[in-house]
């Protein structure tokens, strides 16, 4: 899922201080699961902002709403009927949701309430780690299911590099060497023959290098 992190409340206060009627808009998907922008976080942020502004003698209208998703037209349309009640929206969705809402409501200032971090997994309670960089051409089949693009600092496709020591990456002793993990897994799978095959040059045009990406599916278009 998409992993996001709550923005510091001071930053949000600074962005919204000049608006009077504010909607805090959460998203029920990824940001709910990573506890950054779901219904609970909307409630907490709204309550904190209300208290801050009451304390400053500048009471504002701060409402709360959480949509099923902010990256789909139909859910974002749900707020159209009362969008004029607000001067600004603080969206706690990932960068996709914030932008999609901004595109839809042209004259409404949209303020992001979270920092979108990566595509990752919930490794442990309170720990989310990156697993995918959406490079657009997956190599997991031949790397034992471990991604050298997202988990190797150098994105080395024929690794490991010389910086791998005792299974750790040279950038930090806390970072696993992706290629060590790949070799371990290939051994466990009995597929070390695959390791000997030199990976061809990767087509990076499907990554960001080729500009913003789109997926068009004629078969599902109506």
């Amino acid at each position: 899922m998409i992993i996001a992190e709550k923005k510091p409340i001071e930053e949000i206060i600074d962005e919204v201080k000049d608006f009077h009627r504010i909607l805090i808009l959460g998203c029920n998907e990824c940001v709910t699961v990573c506890e950054a922008g779901g219904k609970k976080e909307v409630e907490v942020l709204a309550s904190a902002l209300r208290m801050y502004f009451i304390n400053q003698g500048d009471e504002k209208v701060i409402d709360e709403r959480t949509l099923e998703r902010q990256c789909d037209h139909e859910y974002l349309e749900e707020i159209r009927s009362n969008i004029d009640d607000y001067d600004a929206i603080v969206s706690l969705a990932c960068g996709v949701g914030v932008q999609f809402a901004a595109e839809k409501y042209l004259t409404m200032p949209l303020i992001p309430g979270v920092n979108t971090v990566c595509l990752g997994a919930n490794e442990d309670r309170g720990l989310w780690t990156e697993r995918c960089q959406a490079c657009g051409s997956c190599v997991l089949a031949r790397t034992g299911g471990i991604c050298p693009v997202s988990r190797c600092a150098k994105r080395v496709l024929n690794g490991p590099c010389g910086g791998s020591t005792n299974g750790k990456c040279e950038i930090s002793k806390d970072v696993d060497c992706a290629w060590q993990l790949i070799v371990d897994r290939l051994k466990a799978l009995g597929k070390m023959d695959d390791y000997e095959k030199v990976a061809p040059i990767k087509d990076w045009s499907t990554d960001r290098a080729g500009g913003p990406r789109t997926v068009t599916r004629e078969d599902v278009k109506i």
């Binding site: 409340i9 001071e10 907490v44 904190a48 902002l49 208290m51 801050y52 304390n55 400053q56």
Partner: peptide, 8 residues
């Protein structure tokens, strides 16, 4: 932490 930040 939140209460500290909002001045309570």
């Amino acid at each position: 932490k939140i209460l500290d930040k909002v001045g309570v």
